[in-house]
Nucleic acid binder design. Sequence first.
DNA 1: CGATGAATTGACCGATGTCAAGTGGCGTGG
DNA 2: CCACGCCACTTGACATCGGTCAATTCATCG
Lengths: 231, 231
Amino acid sequence: MNDPLLSLLAENRFFAGLTPAEIEDMRAAGTVRRFESGDLIVRQGDPADAFYLIFCGYAKLTQVTPDGHRVLSRFVPPGRGFGLTSILNGYEYVWSAYAVSLCRTWVLHGEKIVQYMERIPKLGINVMSVMVRANRESDRRYQGLLTASVEQRIASALVALSEEVGRETSEGILIDVPLSREDLAEYAGTTLYSVSRVLNRWEADGHVRTGRERVVVCQRDALHEISLHSS
Amino acid sequence: MNDPLLSLLAENRFFAGLTPAEIEDMRAAGTVRRFESGDLIVRQGDPADAFYLIFCGYAKLTQVTPDGHRVLSRFVPPGRGFGLTSILNGYEYVWSAYAVSLCRTWVLHGEKIVQYMERIPKLGINVMSVMVRANRESDRRYQGLLTASVEQRIASALVALSEEVGRETSEGILIDVPLSREDLAEYAGTTLYSVSRVLNRWEADGHVRTGRERVVVCQRDALHEISLHSS
DNA sequence: CGATGAATTGACCGATGTCAAGTGGCGTGG
DNA sequence: CCACGCCACTTGACATCGGTCAATTCATCG
């Protein structure tokens, strides 16, 4: 039969180089789940037992720190997933995942992933590639946060979001999820007030256009520049 | 022959569950390199082509940000390694690695790791376990930094360092590498002045004992507490 | 015992968080 | 279709944490 999920999996980097039979086999081992915008997908602290691959819509990963601050970890666009921790037993999700739009996911239990990896070495290598990239990504972001000013952090946040969930439009790169000032603040590690001020300044400079829960990056390079050099 | 490196590898989690023959095979594929304290092991920006496993001494990973700030990423104790990025082609090291004491390493090229993983599925799973742990670790640290005060960050830095390079002594947990105020500042994302002030306050409270490039954590739980709850 | 680099300490100030008040737009219900 | 109310956002005043700079002290090593 003509299976849209199957072809989506086939072109995903998790399954690159696998035979159609192997992919079909794995597809059948997972389940499809659908979430409405705003739905909780997994809760921070729950045992991490499954991997979620988004194939339609966006998910948002947020953490709550012990002293009650919220941190927006990242958005997950179609074709990417979260929950690889599930391949190890005894761990918990470090964030909660919410659907921020109608969201279709393909869910596979961690144990099954391990079973498949034991049978299909290429799968293990693919998974690892994904993890190496993720690691590099957090190393980069980590490094930035430690030394950067608030303005620099907001700039890198927008550059990162352009890649995570950006969509080209005639105006520029639209951040294609509802993104309030507070969301941006939680992503960049600051307050909604500072975000508001910086965004207004940038709007005057033509770097961005903003609206209610909406940001368009017009001059990506300018923001990139700001994120690198101080002041 | 009686090979100390071989037995060290055998009890390392990278090789858990592998047969002695497989371990011996891999051991022979890598090379042993020795570094004096202060030596550069790999340079930030170099092509990431090899994985380094420390089996004696400590390494220190530091990054320099585009605007010239230095960041101390982490210390690598015996039994742990760095450079797993090398399993992917075309990437560069994101930090420089230095030996902070006489340091013996076992070095394996990334391509070889991939070759072995294709042959030995269990190895892939082990490597992945290590990477999942690393990922969780950076997620945790990341989350903390975004919202925490300088005092909280220094506290978590010392707690993390207690685990990375701590050694139990009669006084408490000695951070077993030369650690200047500036090193701590680069680890926690602050300045050596703030570190100095905070450390002195804590010394008065009995939480730590300090000396020249030397810190002993006396009341780990107190620091942990500080790192969680604000002020 | 002197030199060198680490650490301390104080004064200052600026970036950024906090708080409070006000604006504007969007959706809902009458 | 209008009006109300909610919620995102803006803007100003203020407080303060923490960074910067300079001067000094301390400890270790040759």
